[in-house]
């Protein structure tokens, strides 16, 4: 690990200013991903700007019925928040399904959204990886790729985004509040992440040095009937083999509103718009849910080891929606 200077900014403006002035600086949230990658030599910042003591650690109920979650709110506090548990179970469940109790006590909202892929080649500096070292090649494409993408990948990168939280937030049409050199602005979560394309090293649309200050959940009464299903290779403490965030609002048995997002299938949390379209306005049945998932997954291009993700994602879509429909 490269020696680094440590900076604890007094406010958001100072934090952003340090990043603007230092080409090799990084924000430090809970550190659960950044410290890990620094030890591996994958990230080598000169300066760490510790954002955890900034006043961004509150959860605020907004007048419009939405919720603003500060960027440094820890995952465990967010999952335990009474409003989240009541109004956004999909969010609480996604958080609780992630990592472990200790890690959730450390991980922050902002850091979680910007955690890097768990692709094993990305994490090993002795192997080729375009995301870590542009132009070096993608070792995963023809390597061990069971955990990697089936949708929207490119020859340059087949990585997935590992966050569970981000999948729930994608389903909830979250707005990410950021602060960069030009000041504060809002980014829709749908616009936050990029497809890998020819530049997998560029993962988000944020400007370098942009600080996430909060995420804002729009009011969504339908989210009271929502859930997050995650399937993993052991009962707990593992990244997703497949996951689905689902919000379902029925009018009788007709689907009035539905939000679906998938984890573990793509370079970004995958909002399943096509499946939602299939579902909306039709009488709900498990068969309909299966057809909707098929529509979404029609363009899946499994790699050598991850073909199971297609039927798996389909199965958990059906299960999540069926459970919500009957709850």
């Amino acid at each position: 690990m490269k020696a680094f200077r440590y900076h604890r900014p007094a406010d958001v403006a100072e934090a952003v200013a340090v990043l603007a002035a230092e080409p090799q600086a990084a924000y430090l949230g809970g550190g659960t991903n950044l410290v890990d990658l620094m030890k591996l030599g994958v990230q080598r910042p000169d300066v760490l700007v510790d954002v955890t003591r900034l006043p961004l650690d509150t959860v605020e109920e907004l007048p419009d019925g939405g919720l603003r979650i500060g960027a440094t709110v820890r995952n465990s506090d967010l999952a335990a928040h009474p409003v989240v548990r009541r109004d956004y179970p999909v969010l609480a469940r996604a958080l609780l399904a992630a990592a472990s109790g200790q890690l959730r006590n450390m991980a922050t909202t902002g850091g979680n959204l910007l955690q890097r892929t768990r692709c094993v080649y990305f994490q090993d500096t002795s192997k080729a990886c375009n995301k870590r070292e542009p132009g070096s090649g993608c070792a995963a494409l023809h390597g061990q790729n069971r955990d990697l993408a089936v949708l929207d990948w490119s020859e340059q990168c087949v990585a997935t985004h590992p966050s569970d939280l981000a999948v729930a937030l994608a389903a909830l049409d979250t707005v990410v509040e950021v602060h960069d050199a030009d000041g504060p602005r809002d980014v829709r979560i749908a616009d936050l992440y990029r497809s890998p394309g020819t530049h997998p090293e560029r993962e988000t649309t944020l400007a370098r040095g942009a600080l996430i200050t909060a995420v804002r959940l729009p009011p969504l009464p339908a989210a009271r009937r929502s859930t997050y299903l995650k399937v993993r290779d052991r009962a707990s403490f593992a990244f997703a083999a497949g996951s689905v965030a689902a919000v379902l609002n029925l009018d009788g048995d007709v689907v009035r509103d539905v939000r679906l997002a998938y984890g573990a299938v793509a370079h970004r949390p995958w909002r399943a718009y096509r499946a939602e379209e299939e579902l909306r306005g039709r009488p709900f049945s498990p068969e309909l849910a299966a057809r909707a998932a098929d529509a979404e997954l029609a363009e899946a291009r499994p790699l050598r080891h991850n073909g199971f993700k297609v039927p798996l994602t389909r199965a958990i879509t059906v299960r999540a929606l069926t459970e919500l429909a009957s709850s």
Binding site: D124, K127, D233, S236
Partner: peptide
């Protein structure tokens, strides 16, 4: 390549 305890899964609690 799965040379750590996050990717080489051992049975947990």
């Amino acid at each position: 390549v799965n040379h750590d305890l996050a990717t080489y899964h051992i049975t947990g609690c």
